[in-house]
Design a protein around this nucleic acid. Structure first.
Lengths: 186, 186
DNA sequence: GCCGTGATGTCACTGTGTGCCATCAGCGTA
DNA sequence: TACGCTGATGGCACACAGTGACATCACGGC
């Protein structure tokens, strides 16, 4: 018989999500999360660098999709068009996962600390996107500006998606948001 | 004789800046800051909501300038032009203060927690800018997009300013950055 | 001369995050 | 069969951030 049940990290994640949804982020303790998962506070911090990270693990996958799609865009595509490909690739993932992101977003929306971390994640995306553009031969500061503008588009579209009615097409929201940016900058 | 020396907040701020510059943000304790200022940890937290805030107090002034300038732009100015006025107004303040922002930025650059807070501040600027645009009759999501894009421009220009040689004209950097954004979005 | 007020101090306490060492099932190896 | 190594976990002590409750006491007004 195994000494420990497998899937410790998954149990911790589930326990955290449940408790955050029940009582809110601040009102739940790392010790409580660990206990519900049949583990210890110390073990929680072995899997997650801090209490917030349990909500953000997995964002590397999203970022990877983003970067890949930018790299895979046609060589003659304009910087902002390449970014648009990346955003679409992320949207695919969202649509795939279904309702989970909305729950997650509700938790984040209720806590300033988590919103901070969300911002950091998005800025990380922007930096990665800018790097991907540079690999395509786009010079600075055009690369950074295109990437940052793209992330702004993502923020606006995503906000509409989670706050609006269900079943909305996130791809359409992204396209509209990008068109609006172009109009504003024209 | 007064029971307490006046200027408690200013003393705390100076002590914090000095210690952060000497040892770094993480390596200095709130208790140490308070002690150097001749006060107590408890009093520090009466003036500042948390350890980071000592570096960010005063940003409301900057935001106010930003919003005022947007409101004062010609009524027929395009959204992004109004935002540009706001950015210029902020740049005026930077140029006025002199070297302090660079020191501050060096401290922030050395610590992820502080960078997080910086981001929150910038997003707050974007939200305030969007509200100011809406007051001018700009609809959503154009208002938010223009404001977010403007903040992206600010980030890029400011980064160049602090990392480049001294004496650079920040207004010029802003103008160039904005022009670059327009070119990218075209 | 009394009293309220406001800035500060004191103390106790919760929770995050970390370092260090202990435990022990499973695995390979002699 | 016995030995020792490894890797995931527990246990413990600790430093530090942040907070609530109450105490102190100069100053100013009355």
């Amino acid at each position: 018989m195994a000494r420990w049940k497998p899937g410790a990290q998954a149990r911790l994640t589930k326990a955290a999500m449940d408790l955050f949804a029940e009582r809110g982020f601040e009102a739940t303790t790392v010790a409580e999360i660990a206990e519900r998962a049949g583990l210890t506070k110390r073990t929680f911090f072995r899997y997650f660098g801090d209490k917030r990270e349990v909500l953000f693990a997995g964002s590397e996958v999203l970022q990877a999709k983003f970067v890949e799609a930018i790299a895979a865009a046609p060589p003659d595509a304009a910087p902002l068009d390449a970014i648009a490909r990346g955003l679409d690739a992320m949207a695919d993932l969202f649509a795939e996962i279904g309702e989970a992101p909305r729950k997650r977003q509700a938790i984040i929306a209720a806590n300033p600390d988590l919103q901070e971390r969300e911002l950091v994640k998005l800025v990380g995306f922007a930096a990665a996107g800018a790097a991907a553009l540079r690999d395509r031969g786009v010079a600075e500061p055009a690369a950074s500006l295109a990437a940052e503008a793209g992330i702004a588009v993502l923020r606006i579209a995503f906000e509409q998606w989670v706050s609006g009615p269900r079943g909305q097409d996130i791809h359409k929201l992204l396209r509209d948001s990008l068109a609006e940016l172009r109009a504003v900058a024209a």
